[in-house]
Design a protein around this nucleic acid. Sequence first.
DNA 1: TTCCAGGTTACGGAGCTCTC
DNA 2: GAGAGCTCCGTAACCTGGAA
Length: 570
Amino acid sequence: MRPLRPENAVLSCNVFVYNGLCRWRDTFFTRIDTKKVSPKISPDIWGKKGLQTNKLTWQAGSKNRAGRWRKKYNGKVYYFNGGRGKSDRNAYAAAISEWNQIKLRVDAVLPRRHQAEYDSLIETWDRVLTWSNRHGETQMAQIAYEKLIKLRSALEAPVLKSPKREDYLESEFTVPTIDLPENLLEQTAKELKTDNFVFPSLSDSTIESRKKYALELDGSPQRILREIWLDRLDSVRKQSVNSQDLLSENIAEFIKHKKQEVDSNRLSLFRFYTLELHLSHFQQTIDGNISISEINTKLLLKYQSVLLENIKNGKWSNTTARGYLHSMKSFVRWLWHIEAIPNLPRVLDGRVDILSIRSGPMNIIEFTDDEIAVLLNKSKGRTKLFILLMLNCGMTQKDISDLRKNEVDLSAGRIIRKRSKTSHHEGVPTVNYLLWPETLKLLRKYQNDSESERFLLNNKGAPLLSESINKNQKYQKSDNIKCVFDRFRKKVGINKPLKSLKKTSASRLRNNVSYNSLVDLYLGHAPQSMSERHYATHPQELFDSAISWLAAEFKLDPPIMKTSSGKSKL
DNA sequence: TTCCAGGTTACGGAGCTCTC
DNA sequence: GAGAGCTCCGTAACCTGGAA
C-alpha cells in the first residue's frame, strides 16, 4: 500500500502513517474542545482593589433611616452600622472589623473558586516531581518544579484565577493546534476514493465519540508518552511511604528541634527562620514525599546542581547558594546523628570537596572624602549621631541599638564594649574607644533617661533595632537606623550602604603604616595570629592616637586625651 | 594556613500604611 | 491622590571556631 498523503493536509496538519493505517492526531478534536471549554479567567466579583483593601461602600440614608456601610460578597449583601454618618471614622472602623470577621467565616465555609482544580494540579505535578527525581529525569523534574512554584504562588493571590491550559500535565504532550480547512474531511475522503479507500463517516458523531475514536486510533509519540506518564504517576501513588520516613515529616521534626533551641537561647530567631526557609526550598525542590531512605549522594548532588543553576542564571550569589547547601547538609547530618538514616552520604565526609559551593569575591565599598564631608555637614541630630558612632567606633546598627548605659563613660569620653554580633565568643576583645567631641556631645543629648538599660532608644521608647515572631508565626524585624539613614542619603544623593561607614574607617587605618595593626581591634574582631592571641596586650595609647588621627582624616575636631597623670593633651 | 560549618547582621526592593 | 514613611522578607556579606 502506498502512503496515504492528501497534499493539502500533509503540510498543515498531523496526518501520518502508523501500522499501515491513516491516523489523525487529536489536534482536530482538541480545537473543538478548546472552543467548548473556554480557559477564560472568571470575572472578579467585586473588583481587585475592593477585594484587596476590604473597603466598604457608603449607602446614604433616606427619610428617617440612617445611612449605613454596605458590602457585597459572593452575591450576598452585608450591611453595617453607619454611626453618625459617612465621616464617622469609629463607625467605619467597627464596620471594617465586623466585615473582616464575617469574611473569615464565609471564606472558611466556602471553598475558593478553582481551589479543587489547583489542588489536583499540584498533586499531579508533585507526583511528576517524585517520579522524575527517583528516576533521574532532570528535565521533567525542572518543569514540574517550576509548575509547582507557579501554582503555589497563584494560590496566594486574593482572587484565584482559572488555571491555564499549560498548567495541566497533558499540555506537555499536546501537539500545537493549527488551522485546518473547513471541508478537510470531505476533501480528503474525495481524494482517497481514487485509491478505493473507504473513509469512515463522522457526520453523526458527537464531540465525545470523536475524541474517543481519535484516542483509539492515535499512536502518536505524544500519545504514547502521555500514557507512559499516566502509568508512572499511578506507580508513584501506589508506593506509599511510612509517614515517619517522609522527608517532609523529618524536616518538620528538625525545625521543631531548632525551635526548642531558640526557646532556650541556644539559637537566634533569625537562624531558625533561615533554616526553615532553606529546608522548605530543599523539600520543594527534591519533593517532600520521598522517604529519607532515598537520601543519597546522587540526590544531594542533584540539589547542589539546582543551586548552581541559580548562580549561573544570576538569580543568586554564591553566598546565598552556599547558605542553602549548608542548611541542607546540616539537616542530613542531624538525620544521621539521631540514627534516622543508617549511613551518612559519602559526599558529607569532611575530607571530600564535592558537595560545596565557594563564596564569591568580596565587594568592598567605601565613602570618599567628599562624601564623608557631605554626610557630616548635612546631617544633624540622631542621624549625625548614628553616622559618627559608625565612623568613630566601627559600629553597626545592631551595636548602636544594643549599646548599654554601663558601656558608655561620658565623663571619660569613652565607649568600652564587645561587638554585639560576637560578644558571646571568648576570643573577641573588649574595645576601649575614645570618643570624638561631636560624638560625645550628641550622645549626651540623646541618651535615654528611662529605666531601660539601652543607652539609645527610638522616639517611641523602643529599641532602635528589633526582631520578633509575629502572631502569624512569621519572623519580622524593624531597623530605625537604616530607615533614618536611607531617607537622609536619598536627600543628599549618596547611594552607598550604611555599613560602608565602618569599612571606610577601617580602610583608613589599614592604609596607615603606624596604625594598620589595629584594624582588627578597631573592628572588634578576634585576633587571628597566635602571637596576637596569646602574647600581645591591647596598646591603648596607640589605639587612642589612631582614633584621634581618624577624626583629623574626616576633618573633625580631635578628642582631648588624658595622660596617665590625668593631664589633658591634644 | 586554609577551608568548612554554623552562625549573625546588613542591604534593598516591593508593597502597604499614613498623612496632608 | 500623591508622596513620605514603614514593614516585611529574601538575599548578601561577614564572622568565629575548629578540623585537617
